[in-house]
Amino acid sequence: MHELSIVFHIIKTIEQVGEENKLEHVNSVTLEVGEVSAVIDEYLGDCWKWAADRSELLKGARLVIEKLPAVTMCETCERTYATVQYGRICPYCGSERTYLLSGREINIKEIEVG
Protein backbone atom coordinates (compact mmCIF):
# COMPACT_ATOMS: atom_id res chain seq x y z
CA MET A 1 0.00 0.00 0.00
CA HIS A 2 2.94 2.32 0.30
CA GLU A 3 5.05 1.18 -2.61
CA LEU A 4 5.93 4.68 -3.77
CA SER A 5 7.40 5.78 -0.47
CA ILE A 6 9.31 2.51 -0.21
CA VAL A 7 10.73 3.24 -3.64
CA PHE A 8 11.75 6.71 -2.46
CA HIS A 9 13.53 5.19 0.56
CA ILE A 10 15.36 2.74 -1.71
CA ILE A 11 16.45 5.48 -4.09
CA LYS A 12 17.66 7.64 -1.23
CA THR A 13 19.74 4.81 0.20
CA ILE A 14 21.26 3.89 -3.15
CA GLU A 15 22.06 7.49 -4.02
CA GLN A 16 23.92 7.67 -0.73
CA VAL A 17 25.85 4.50 -1.58
CA GLY A 18 26.48 5.93 -5.05
CA GLU A 19 27.92 9.10 -3.64
CA GLU A 20 30.14 7.33 -1.14
CA ASN A 21 31.46 4.97 -3.78
CA LYS A 22 31.54 7.50 -6.60
CA LEU A 23 29.31 5.35 -8.77
CA GLU A 24 28.22 6.72 -12.11
CA HIS A 25 25.37 4.44 -12.91
CA VAL A 26 23.46 1.56 -11.40
CA ASN A 27 22.14 -1.08 -13.79
CA SER A 28 19.94 -3.00 -11.44
CA VAL A 29 18.81 -3.19 -7.85
CA THR A 30 17.93 -6.46 -6.17
CA LEU A 31 15.43 -6.43 -3.34
CA GLU A 32 14.52 -9.16 -0.92
CA VAL A 33 10.82 -8.91 -0.20
CA GLY A 34 9.19 -11.01 2.51
CA GLU A 35 6.16 -13.04 1.46
CA VAL A 36 3.88 -11.26 3.91
CA SER A 37 5.27 -7.74 3.65
CA ALA A 38 2.59 -5.22 2.82
CA VAL A 39 3.83 -4.48 -0.69
CA ILE A 40 2.65 -5.72 -4.04
CA ASP A 41 5.50 -6.53 -6.41
CA GLU A 42 3.70 -5.25 -9.47
CA TYR A 43 2.96 -1.86 -7.90
CA LEU A 44 6.50 -1.70 -6.62
CA GLY A 45 7.72 -2.24 -10.19
CA ASP A 46 5.46 0.49 -11.58
CA CYS A 47 6.51 3.00 -8.92
CA TRP A 48 10.12 2.03 -9.51
CA LYS A 49 9.96 2.73 -13.23
CA TRP A 50 8.49 6.14 -12.63
CA ALA A 51 10.82 7.19 -9.81
CA ALA A 52 14.10 5.61 -10.95
CA ASP A 53 13.95 7.48 -14.26
CA ARG A 54 14.01 10.73 -12.33
CA SER A 55 17.33 9.84 -10.74
CA GLU A 56 20.50 10.27 -12.77
CA LEU A 57 22.21 7.40 -11.02
CA LEU A 58 19.29 5.03 -11.51
CA LYS A 59 17.89 6.00 -14.90
CA GLY A 60 16.61 2.86 -16.58
CA ALA A 61 17.81 0.61 -13.75
CA ARG A 62 16.04 -2.72 -13.42
CA LEU A 63 14.36 -3.74 -10.19
CA VAL A 64 14.82 -7.41 -9.35
CA ILE A 65 12.62 -8.84 -6.62
CA GLU A 66 13.57 -11.98 -4.72
CA LYS A 67 10.98 -13.40 -2.37
CA LEU A 68 11.85 -14.34 1.19
CA PRO A 69 9.65 -17.05 2.72
CA ALA A 70 7.43 -16.18 5.66
CA VAL A 71 7.99 -18.40 8.69
CA THR A 72 5.84 -18.56 11.81
CA MET A 73 7.02 -19.79 15.20
CA CYS A 74 4.71 -21.69 17.54
CA GLU A 75 5.22 -20.79 21.18
CA THR A 76 3.46 -23.92 22.38
CA CYS A 77 5.35 -26.65 20.54
CA GLU A 78 8.30 -24.46 19.54
CA ARG A 79 8.23 -25.58 15.94
CA THR A 80 8.25 -23.36 12.88
CA TYR A 81 6.05 -23.59 9.80
CA ALA A 82 5.25 -21.88 6.50
CA THR A 83 3.04 -18.89 7.26
CA VAL A 84 1.39 -18.51 3.87
CA GLN A 85 0.36 -22.16 3.73
CA TYR A 86 -0.90 -22.61 7.30
CA GLY A 87 -1.76 -19.14 8.57
CA ARG A 88 -2.02 -18.25 12.20
CA ILE A 89 -2.79 -21.64 13.75
CA CYS A 90 0.06 -24.11 14.23
CA PRO A 91 -0.39 -27.12 11.89
CA TYR A 92 1.46 -29.40 14.35
CA CYS A 93 -0.32 -28.76 17.63
CA GLY A 94 -3.25 -26.48 16.78
CA SER A 95 -2.03 -23.70 19.07
CA GLU A 96 -2.96 -20.07 18.43
CA ARG A 97 0.11 -18.85 20.33
CA THR A 98 2.18 -18.14 17.27
CA TYR A 99 4.20 -15.24 16.01
CA LEU A 100 5.82 -14.28 12.74
CA LEU A 101 9.52 -15.07 12.68
CA SER A 102 10.32 -13.68 9.26
CA GLY A 103 8.59 -12.67 6.06
CA ARG A 104 7.93 -8.99 6.57
CA GLU A 105 11.36 -7.78 5.44
CA ILE A 106 12.06 -5.44 2.58
CA ASN A 107 15.83 -5.40 2.13
CA ILE A 108 18.06 -3.94 -0.51
CA LYS A 109 20.22 -6.96 -1.20
CA GLU A 110 22.63 -5.72 -3.84
CA ILE A 111 23.10 -3.42 -6.76
CA GLU A 112 24.78 -4.02 -10.08
CA VAL A 113 26.96 -1.18 -11.23
CA GLY A 114 28.08 -0.71 -14.78
Binding site: T13, N21, L23, I106, N107, I108, I111, E112
Partner: peptide, 20 residues
Protein backbone atom coordinates in the same frame (compact mmCIF):
# COMPACT_ATOMS: atom_id res chain seq x y z
CA UNK B 1 32.00 -5.53 -3.93
CA UNK B 2 32.96 -8.43 -6.12
CA UNK B 3 33.98 -8.99 -9.67
CA UNK B 4 31.05 -10.54 -11.39
CA UNK B 5 31.74 -10.31 -15.08
CA UNK B 6 34.27 -8.23 -16.79
CA UNK B 7 32.64 -4.86 -16.51
CA UNK B 8 29.74 -5.53 -14.23
CA UNK B 9 30.19 -5.39 -10.50
CA UNK B 10 27.84 -6.38 -7.78
CA UNK B 11 27.79 -4.23 -4.69
CA UNK B 12 26.26 -5.95 -1.70
CA UNK B 13 24.09 -3.60 0.34
CA UNK B 14 22.16 -5.82 2.78
CA UNK B 15 20.14 -3.03 4.25
CA UNK B 16 16.52 -2.87 5.26
CA UNK B 17 14.47 -0.29 3.39
CA UNK B 18 13.24 0.93 6.76
CA UNK B 19 16.70 1.37 8.25
CA UNK B 20 17.09 5.05 7.35
Amino acid sequence: MEHFMKEVKILEIKKSVFED
